[in-house]
């Protein structure tokens, strides 16, 4: 208990670091993921190819390698002004976007063809079909997988701690270097992660129940 009380400021920084890192990369991943999913289902071949390439490359690359790319190559090719936090958000967001894209795409594909055909036959426009028929149904199937992805993102964000971002893993390393009891530190850090992941899964379960439709 002393470990936690004595270093509460560090734990708090780490906790909120992980929260904000997860939140920021989640926003980036969701926006990019939906965009790339739109590319992948579009009737435009080059965009489809780009989407496929994006997903294949990012899904088969270890996240640690992406962090190295963000650290050494992004500053050279884009701009040198980014902080390690922003680079971590880029790496995490891009990586997770590939998985979000696949979840969204399979969500759209689960909507039965008849739904869209019926909508078209009563004269709805493309936007109407998307807004009123397809997306509401797709959203409901997408919620559960996206929830799991957000939990995975929280866990993946720990890697950022090794690339000079302040979050829970960097707190664990910092305290371990001070010679405190390693197992005790581990237990508190583990507890902090459990709190975040349980909160996320609770949130998504709530969302799922809210949107559930009796069929």
């Amino acid at each position: 208990m002393n470990v936690l009380v004595d270093n509460f400021a560090l734990f708090r920084q780490g906790f909120f670091g992980t929260l904000s890192l997860t939140g920021a990369s989640a926003v980036l991943a969701l926006l990019l993921g939906v965009l790339i999913a739109a590319f992948r289902v579009s009737p435009v071949p080059p965009l489809r190819a780009f989407g496929t390439l994006w997903v294949t490359l990012l899904r088969n690359t270890p996240l640690t390698l992406l962090f190295l790319v963000a650290t050494f190559i992004v500053p050279e090719v884009l701009t040198t002004g980014l902080s390690s936090y922003q680079l971590a958000v880029l790496a995490l967001g891009f990586y997770t976007s590939a998985f979000v894209c696949e979840a969204v795409r399979s969500g759209v594909n689960t909507v039965p063809l008849g739904q869209a055909e019926a909508a078209r036959s009563i004269g709805m426009t493309f936007t109407q079909i998307l807004r009123l028929i397809i997306l509401p149904q797709a959203a409901r199937t997408v919620i559960a997988p996206v929830g799991s992805l957000m939990i995975a993102l929280t866990k993946n964000s720990a890697i950022a701690g090794a690339f000079s971002v302040t979050e829970l893993f960097s707190t664990q390393k910092l305290l371990s270097d001070q010679g405190l009891n390693l197992t005790v530190i581990f237990i508190w850090i583990a507890l902090a992660y459990l709190i975040i992941t349980f909160a996320i899964s609770g949130l998504f379960r709530l969302l799922e129940n809210r949107l559930a439709v009796a069929r």
Partner: peptide
């Protein structure tokens, strides 16, 4: 539920 690296780090540091 735990990030893998947290566990690996503990094993390595101990």
């Amino acid at each position: 539920a735990l990030p893998l690296i947290i566990m690996i780090y503990l094993l390595w540091a101990t």
